[in-house]
Design a protein around this nucleic acid. Structure first.
Lengths: 190, 190
DNA sequence: CCGCCGTCTGTACAGATGTACACGGTGGTC
DNA sequence: GACCACCGTGTACATCTGTACAGACGGCGG
């Protein structure tokens, strides 16, 4: 936020600029939702002049697309990191529970990136990006179990994330844990 | 759409008006997304003057809330109807598959109501309505299986709905069916 | 038969938004 | 050292938005 770069410079190439704007767009979406994404809000969040956002992204949809791409990349990276850091002997259901709850605990920063994901419903251009996001989940979850279970867990993960974000008394870790255990181990594991 | 009611009448009470506007709002959201919900668009869709929408709904959030309420009610009703109509001997996984695919096939009319559902992420006022929607799913799905499995299926249903809506080659019925079967019957049922 | 009151509507207005575009400055080239 | 192409910026404008509000209109009590 408070980076006081030499503002008066002009005409110098700034390759970070474009990415900084895209990341500021994510922050704006996290704060005001997709419908609050405006050139001016992004410009203010990135601390760049208004013309800079329209220069780097001709249309607002371009900006939205790049923001989604970054959000998806970040999330996939985070999940891969989570994967390689988890204990292979500990229960996978417990690890998944931690993952879901970590999404909620971190403030609105991460859950709301699913707002970008959902934005693809009405914007066909964004669907490949959201679909790739899904595929990464399926791949990671499937590697620890099997491909079919991976699909189950990816779908359950997505749905549970929304439901826990919306439920007023957020479900306890035990409840979420029980759900994942039931999904992985089957009905007889109660 | 083409209802040519006596438009010149004024000062007469019209109790249907309010609901008609709310339902038109659902159609607008289905077509343009939540960020496309404007008083003018709703007025045009409901074929009422602009002032009528602002009269019945003081603020746009009121309209959004009522629209979400109607969408949730409709969906819950549809799912209850689906429940009471399904064959108790047929596979539950197959029935769930049909349900998911019916949401997709009907054009964008129903999936996009999940746009309203997701809108609750950024609007705390709407969360109780979306949460009630979820609870109804858990209840219906749990009645056919058990409470815990009901939660699994509700989460999976929500996630799978989004993922199938976003995946470019929509997954086949067989794939969806396999996922539900795996979730219900457990790992050894392959 | 008359007047009041609540219901409904068309219009007006302030504010915000996307986008185009002309201008200022910089680094490289001859 | 002078020039030029090009990157970056501030501003302007047409459009659209939410909302307020004064007035039209019809039912209903007296």
């Amino acid at each position: 936020m408070g980076e006081a770069a030499p503002r008066t410079r002009s005409g110098t190439a700034d390759p970070q600029r474009r990415e900084r704007i895209a990341r500021a767009a994510i922050a704006v979406v996290a704060e005001r939702g997709v419908d609050g994404l405006t050139h001016r809000a992004v410009a203010a969040a990135a601390d760049v002049p208004l013309g800079s956002t329209t220069y780097h992204f001709r249309t607002l949809d371009d900006l939205l697309e790049e923001a989604l791409r970054h959000a998806a990349d970040d999330n996939i990276g985070a999940i891969r990191a989570w994967e390689s850091a988890l204990d292979p002997d500990a229960g996978f259901a417990a690890a998944l529970t931690d993952l879901v709850l970590s999404y909620l605990g971190e403030g609105t920063h991460t859950v709301v990136e699913y707002d970008l994901y959902v934005a693809a419903l009405h914007r066909p251009r964004l669907r490949p990006v959201s679909a790739a996001w899904d595929e990464a989940l399926v791949e990671v979850f499937g590697r620890r179990t099997d491909p079919l279970t991976g699909r189950v867990l990816a779908g359950l993960f997505c749905g549970l994330l929304m439901q826990t974000a919306i439920a007023d008394p957020a479900p306890s870790a035990d409840e979420v844990h029980a759900i994942f255990r039931r999904a992985i181990d089957g009905p007889r594991a109660a």
